[in-house]
C-alpha cells in the first residue's frame, strides 16, 4: 500500500469516526469493511491510566506543506478556543506556519511548528513547581493548576512552543481549559487522544496529508513504519531531546 492509499484510508477512517462517533469505531469499522486495512488506534478504557507502552508523536512531511496555507493553525485555534485578542505578540499560538529559506540557495521549506513533545523536555527540567510535566505516553503538558506563571519554561524551550495567557479569558471550551497568567502550549490534542480519536485537530484538517499522528512505540503503526522506511529528522537534534515530532524534507 503506498502513501496515497494510506492517506485515503485515513480519510475514510476519519469520516467513519465522525459518522459513528466515539469508541464504537474500532468494532464497527471492522464489521463494515472487512478486509480493508484499518489504521485504528485502540481507545483505552476511560479508567485506565496512560502508560509508556505508547509514545504519541507526529510525522510532518514538509514537502507537501503549501506556502500560505494555515488550515492546521485554524483547526487548532477552533479545537482549543484560541482567539485573537491583543495581537500576535501576546496571543497564544499553539501551532504556527514557519517558512524557512536557505540563505545561499534560496531553497524554501514550509512547515508547521508546535510543541515537539520531547522525551527530555527542557521545560519540564526548569519548571520550579512541576507544573510542566510529561505524561508517561510522551505528551508534554502544563498542569495549569500549579503553574505560577514564572515563564521559565518559555525561556527554556528551544522551539518557542510555549505561550503565556496574557489576559482574562471567557468562554473557554470544556475540553481546553485555559486561563490568565498560566503558560500553555500544544497538548497534542490530549483530549482527542484519550477519547481514542487517534488523530489531532491539525492532522485532521490538513488535506495535503502533511501531518501524521501515531504511536512511535508501536512498530506496526503507520508513523513508525514510515519513519523506518523514509526517515525523519528532529528539529535542533543536536540538543539530544529526542522529540516526538519528526520532520521530513528538511
Amino acid at each position: 500500500m503506498d502513501h496515497n492509499d494510506m492517506k485515503e484510508t485515513n480519510k475514510i477512517d476519519q469520516y467513519r469516526r465522525k459518522f459513528l462517533g466515539g469508541s464504537a469505531v474500532a468494532a464497527a469499522g471492522l464489521a463494515l469493511a472487512p478486509g480493508v486495512f484499518l489504521h485504528t488506534v485502540q481507545a483505552k478504557p476511560d479508567d485506565e491510566a496512560v502508560s509508556n507502552k505508547n509514545r504519541w508523536g507526529l510525522l510532518i512531511d514538509t514537502t507537501k506543506c503549501a506556502e500560505g496555507c494555515s488550515d492546521c493553525v485554524t483547526a487548532c485555534n477552533n479545537e482549543h478556543g484560541l482567539r485573537e485578542i491583543h495581537g500576535p505578540a501576546t496571543d497564544s499560538q499553539w501551532i504556527r506556519h514557519v517558512t524557512l529559506k536557505n540563505k545561499q540557495t534560496g531553497h524554501q521549506i514550509d512547515m508547521p511548528m508546535m510543541c515537539q513533545h520531547c522525551e527530555k523536555p527542557p521545560c519540564v527540567d526548569v519548571c520550579p513547581t512541576g507544573a510542566s510535566f510529561k505524561r508517561t505516553d510522551g505528551i508534554v503538558l502544563v498542569d495549569k493548576h500549579i503553574c505560577i506563571g514564572c515563564r521559565y519554561c518559555m525561556m527554556a524551550c528551544p522551539y518557542k512552543a510555549r505561550n503565556l495567557v496574557h489576559e482574562v479569558l471567557t468562554d473557554q471550551l470544556p475540553t481546553a481549559p485555559r486561563g490568565k497568567g498560566t503558560v500553555e502550549s500544544c497538548t497534542l490534542c490530549v483530549h482527542k487522544v484519550d477519547r481514542g480519536d487517534g488523530t489531532t485537530a491539525c492532522a485532521e484538517a490538513c488535506t495535503a496529508g502533511v501531518i501524521l499522528f501515531g504511536d512511535l512505540n508501536d512498530k506496526n503503526s503507520e508513523i513508525s513504519q514510515r519513519l523506518a522506511k523514509e526517515g525523519g529528522q528532529q528539529l535542533r537534534a543536536e540538543l539530544g531531546l529526542n522529540t516526538g515530532v519528526r520532520y521530513q524534507g528538511l
Binding site: T74, N78, G81, R83, L173, T175, K180
Partner: peptide, 27 residues
Amino acid sequence: FECHADRPVESFSQSQIPAPNRRSEAV
C-alpha cells in the same frame, strides 16, 4: 471557572465557539 467552562458545551451558541470569522471581531 477562570479556566474551566461553567456550562455544558451544548449550550455554547455558535458565536461563542471560536471560528475563523469571529476572530476578527475579537480584534
